[in-house]
């Protein structure tokens, strides 16, 4: 119980730090990275909850979640680089802070 509380507290601090960065972040990349961190922390939260609840199947869910998070971040970054998700990418578009 106290172990769970300590783990949750640590995760909560991490969440708040990441959300602070997503809120303040001067550049868009800070924000993208912060949201990616929130996703990682969500994966950790699911794992911790599954561990303390005695349900190892939650680990698989957390893994799938990490994959979705990764693909989402790649999609956002690809959008940033090319301005589109299709294959008619602009050859010379440089990144800019939208």
């Amino acid at each position: 119980m106290s172990c769970l509380a300590a783990a949750l507290l640590a995760l909560g601090v991490g969440f708040i730090l990441a959300i602070t960065r997503a809120t303040l972040g001067p550049t868009p990349f800070d924000r993208v990275l912060a949201v990616n961190t929130v996703g990682t922390l969500a994966v950790l939260a699911i794992s911790v909850y599954g561990f303390f609840d005695g349900r190892p199947a939650f680990l698989d869910i957390a893994l799938l979640y990490a994959l979705i998070n990764f693909i989402g971040t790649i999609a956002i970054l690809k959008y940033f680089r090319f301005g589109t998700l299709g294959d008619h990418a602009l050859p010379n578009s440089d990144e800019d802070g939208a």
């Binding site: 809120t23 868009p28 924000r31 949201v35 929130v38 996703g39 969500a42 979640y65 998070n69 989402g72």
Partner: peptide, 15 residues
């Protein structure tokens, strides 16, 4: 842009 990023974070926590 920050609002969009925060809504993404909101979805992750909601999930």
């Amino acid at each position: 842009f920050a609002v969009v990023m925060l809504s993404g974070a909101f979805s992750l926590v909601a999930a």
